[in-house]
Structures are given as C-alpha cells and as structure tokens.
Design a protein around this nucleic acid. Structure first.
Length: 269
DNA sequence: TCTCATGTTTAGGT
DNA sequence: GACCTAAACATGAG
C-alpha cells in the first residue's frame, strides 16, 4: 500500500451519474474533460516530485521539472515540459484517477507537492520536443485552432476513401472515434460506405461542420452524464427517424461497428 | 462464465 | 507499394 498522500480526492465518475458511464470513452471530448479537470488543480509551473509506474520511459527525466502546460490533441493528452512532452494515449482500456489510486499498479504516476495524477493501461510516450513543434492543432476537432478548411482539403485528397474510414482518420479528424463516426454519419444522412470522392462539396462541408458540432455536444452530454441517452444511431436497433430496423455491420478499413439506416442515409457512389 | 468494445501499432502475408 | 489480416495491448460491462 502506498503512503497517505496529500490532496483532495477526485474520482472521475463522481460527477457521472449515467449508469455504466464511469468509463472513459476515450474520444476527443473525453480528453478535454480530463484536461479541464487537471487544469483546476493549478499545477502549471509546479515541479514533479516523484514518478512511478510501469512505463518504459525514463522516469528520472521528469523529477524536479516544472509542468509548463496540460494540453490535448485529438485523443492524445499532453503534459508539456520545456524541452519535451509526455504523450498519453488511453487506447481502448485506459483510465485515470486524480488524487486517488486503483488497486492495480499505474502505468504512470506523477506526484506533485499537493496532487498526484495516475494513468492506467495507457500508452505513454516521451516526445523529445515541445508540443507546438510536433502537433498541428488545426486538425484537432476540439481545438480553438480547428480549421474546417484543412479537413475539407484532406478529404478532397482522398476520393477513394469511405466515409466511415474518413470519420476515424486521425490525420483528418483528430479526436473523432467510433461513436462520433456513427452519430455524424446518421445526423448528416450519409451512408457509411459512401465514397468521399462521390460526395458533393456541400455535403462534405456539412460532414466536417457536424463532426465539430457533435463533438461539442458529446462534451456537454458527457459532462452531464447523459451522453448515451442522446445517441441516435450508435448501439441503437431502431431508426429514430423512420422507425425501421437499423443495420449493424462491421465496415471499413478497420472493420469497426457501424450502425446506420439504409432508408435515411444516402449512399454516394 | 463468456462475449464484446470507445483504439492503435506492428508484423506478416498476398 | 497497396492492401489485407491477425496479434498484441489488457479492462470491465452486461
């Protein structure tokens, strides 16, 4: 058992009342929630005192270094130091606790004077550069610097790509995941097997706009613990528009679950 | 008990 | 090189 550490206990799921929703759902909006929770601790400018965890990165490298900023890019959570950046990716099963510990050993623990950050079953990388040198913020669907024109141009460069693959492509829509994919395709009435090159420009622009828009709905609903309640297609059996049975198929390059309505969602190409 | 899933990388084959 | 597949990672809900 670890020693008793200072700090206010903070458990992610205490403000999530949705049944079965105390898991991360690690798409972009969930990473923003993590970032905002950590920003409230006031750790910027504070030095790391201890580092623990099963990660292979050089943990001694962090001792005594001051955190410059906490940032997020798509599904990446970034802890920024002057000369390097810690990148945390939660993959499918990752989780975190602030000023609390799980029974299972952490992949990475950062212990400050008054707080500690614990990350479990995540992919941890030490990037030997400041975040601004590595990340293009205009492709992050949650970023203030998000540029829809960048996504549109990238889509135009990939005419053979399927819509369901485009919505999962982190080079185009950093932060979009399978939930966002299914909901955006349903909301824009686009069939997941549509070819990007066959979709009219106006519809492509709508797709880009709706991805950003739904991601922020996701953020609000996730904070309120009502995300699942608002799903129109994802995991649903019946189309909320026309009441016919939704298709559930494993589609695209990575064969991910797709829920769609053959009647309401138009196939382009 | 068993299946399935919010994700990505890597290695191997054709 | 393009494209496909499986494996690995490893948790927890239902």
């Amino acid at each position: 058992m670890g020693e008793c550490r200072k700090g206010t206990p903070f458990v992610w799921h205490i403000f999530s009342f949705e049944v079965g929703n105390d898991i991360l759902m690690p798409e972009g909006p969930s990473i923003v929630i993590l970032r905002e929770a950590i920003e409230k601790l006031g750790l910027k400018g504070k030095p790391v005192r201890h580092v623990e965890g099963s990660t292979k990165i050089d943990k001694d490298r962090l001792i005594g270094k001051k955190v410059i900023d906490f940032r997020s890019w798509g599904k990446h959570f970034l802890i920024c130091f002057e000369d390097f950046t810690i990148r945390i990716h939660f993959m499918l099963f990752g989780s975190y606790l602030i000023n609390e510990q799980k029974k299972t050993p952490p992949r990475l623990s950062l212990i400050f004077d008054k707080h500690e950050l614990n990350f479990y079953t995540s992919s941890i990388k030490l990037i030997e550069a400041p975040a601004d040198e590595v990340y293009d913020w205009s492709t992050d669907i949650m970023s203030k610097k998000w540029r829809p024109s960048t996504a549109f141009e990238k889509l135009k460069e990939s005419p053979k790509m399927l819509a369901c693959d485009a919505l999962l492509d982190q080079d185009i829509f950093a932060g979009s995941g399978n939930i966002i994919k299914n909901e955006v395709l349903f909301r824009t009435r686009t069939h997941p097997l549509s070819k990007i090159g066959e979709i009219p420009d106006s519809k492509l622009k709508e797709l880009v706009k709706e991805t950003r828009s739904y991601a922020f709905d996701f953020l609000d609903w996730k904070k309120e613990g009502v995300l699942k309640k608002h799903w129109l297609a994802h995991t649903k059996k019946i189309c909320p528009r026309c009441q016919i049975r939704l298709h559930k198929e494993y589609l695209g390059r990575t064969k991910r679950r797709s829920y769609f309505c053959e009647n309401c969602q138009r196939m382009y190409g």
